[in-house]
Design a protein around this nucleic acid. Structure first.
Lengths: 338, 338
DNA sequence: CGTTGCAATGTAAGCGCTTACATGGTTTAA
DNA sequence: TTAAACCATGTAAGCGCTTACATTGCAACG
């Protein structure tokens, strides 16, 4: 207590007049220790302000009850919701979540994998499947189970996600059904991001099926801030002929685009229609409310957690869990003016 | 490699034909090892897919280069920006950030403290200073330095933040200067949240100074989602006489309030003025753009990181760093109709 | 009353790493 | 030529914990 370095199991044992084994048992399986002893030990723990050292514990017991998640960015709401329920589900199973972010950079993601593996993560959650094989090989070699979420990979491994391509195509079909022929798209950066790439591919699929020429579907890739969306919108609106609709790779970009549209004095959807993807809270906050694709993030987070736990405990498990999506029509999509 | 359990230092040493000490040196102070040996070791590391075990390393070296942050919630953007620059600054100093969230619950915060302490955090970032003394005592007893951010405490310890009370008062003065006399407020939950409490106190200060009766400043506390803000707005607008301005404890609540105002067919600022606090990205995305208080989150994050590092390395350090705030007038504040 | 069995506790061997110290080989200076 | 100095590497002792196994004490049984 007056000693200024942190107390150890040994200190507690000495204070309580028992062996370190007994203290350890008190903490980990209290019913193996008789009540009187337990009380004495707990009191010692309390007065010394003892907290077990995680490193020592992990080293000795060879398990950590920790799982890691590596997300591209914490800087927007896209992953927040899903991660939250991932974490809630995990904690129902007594696991702790460690979150790291990769900034959409595969090299950084790999570093984070090593950091989490080194910290003893029992399993990992990754976003999407666009990454060097080296990275997943590393996890396989270390025997660390992982699930990939937010999209549906085709190969080996475990996925819980949705069909970004089909959902985007469906939305594009709806757009086309409104009579739009001069489409355009603000996609997320597609490199090393299969969600963005799939959404772009889906829109292209639908356009092609409707006989729309590539020239009538200009695509600009933009990073993940309002700013980026706004900038792309500016470029798109400067084109002639001007697109009558701007389909965005996610809601953040869409809101950025709306911002710019307003600055340009363009009414939505009369002058230009805009669509998003994800249906985050933001979508219902802007005026008019955003037409977008609803993705059940909470459900996906839960499913991912359950899958990962089954993997860790070596229970039988599905490899591909598909989460359904739905188009939510609100105020930013309407027929073109002409 | 074909062994399915993770490789250890020993495996690498054996593969490279050196001792574990040499491998360790290769990893931690490569210049102490001759190039030829180093190359051999690094190759072994590579082919085995070795990653040092953090627990073992921490145990042996008694340092972790890890700092922890406990934030109330990841669910909204209020802390994201500041945390991001906190983390960037930290990583410039070779430290890793572990983030935990407390859900605004002091007991949960305490648990997280213990979890992070157990994981060997060299220091901690906490938000605000409303928490049981027991919690900070615990950190002091373990000798773990911590800084509190987002507000300015008056007591002992280290703080980097801004004067929530003065800033809120200043904004309220501005509101009053526009001619408003029937104020109202949607505050964050003030219990165990000094930011929310201070902002409320600030508004009250200004109202009192202007001779506005308490009855003309109804206050509703709301949690931290759009929904909560909208609900509170509904209640406020149902009162008679109806307040001419709604000052919100943060931008998220303000945006929720705007949403409800719109549903009620109220024009802003003609029918009702609304103000926020924080100036997160969201504030410039709504229509009209939100009048709010700008808080330099990035700067605060940096300052907090620097302070914490000085604390950890036992360099001299200021105890109270005040970050300035500014009112940003945009479109949601105007004179009252009458 | 001597066994047996069991429950509570102690003993001690590591878990994977770092590092003080020991060792041996090579260079340098006298 | 030899001692001193130095460098690269090895040896081995722990860091704080868990846990298999050993020990103890006591109740229950024949």
């Amino acid at each position: 207590m007056n000693d200024h370095s942190k107390p150890t199991l040994d200190d507690v044992a000495r204070a309580a007049g028992v062996s370190t084994a007994t203290v350890s048992r008190c903490l980990n399986s209290p019913d193996q220790v008789i009540a009187a002893t337990r009380l004495r030990v707990m009191q010692a723990v309390e007065t010394l302000g003892y907290t077990p050292d995680f490193g020592g514990r992990a080293l000795a017991s060879r398990r950590t009850n920790t799982v890691g998640a590596i997300i591209p960015t914490m800087d927007n709401a896209i992953f927040a919701r899903g991660l939250q329920s991932f974490q809630e589900t995990l904690s129902r199973f007594g696991k702790t979540l460690l979150v790291a972010s990769s900034n959409y950079d595969p090299a950084r993601e790999r570093e984070q994998m090593e950091a989490l593996a080194g910290r003893g993560a029992d399993g990992l959650l990754l976003i999407g499947s666009a990454r060097p094989d080296m990275s997943t090989d590393y996890l396989r070699r270390r025997g660390i189970p992982f699930v990939r979420a937010w999209n549906l990979g085709s190969g080996d491994g475990h996925f819980v996600g949705f069909d970004n391509r089909a959902a985007a195509a469906m939305l594009a079909e709806r757009v086309i059904a409104y009579g739009h022929r001069r489409l355009s798209m603000i996609a997320g950066v597609t490199q090393m991001n299969d969600r963005a790439a799939d959404r772009m591919a889906g829109v292209r699929d639908a356009a092609r099926a409707a006989g729309i020429a590539d020239a009538d579907l200009p695509v600009i890739e933009a990073a993940y801030t309002f700013e980026d969306g706004a900038r792309a919108m500016g470029e798109l609106m400067a084109r002639t002929p001007r697109p009558s609709v701007v389909m965005c790779g996610n809601d953040v970009l869409a809101v950025g685009a709306m911002q710019r549209a307003r600055e340009l004095g363009l009414a939505m959807p009369a002058d230009v229609s805009i669509t998003g993807f994800d249906d985050i809270d933001l979508a219902r906050v802007v005026t008019p409310e955003l037409t977008t694709v609803r993705v059940p993030h909470r459900r996906m987070g839960e499913a991912a957690a359950e899958m990962l736990i089954r993997l860790i405990t070596k229970q039988p498990v599905e490899t591909h869990v598909k989460i359904p999506t739905a188009i939510v029509e609100r105020g930013t999509l309407g027929p073109p003016r002409d």
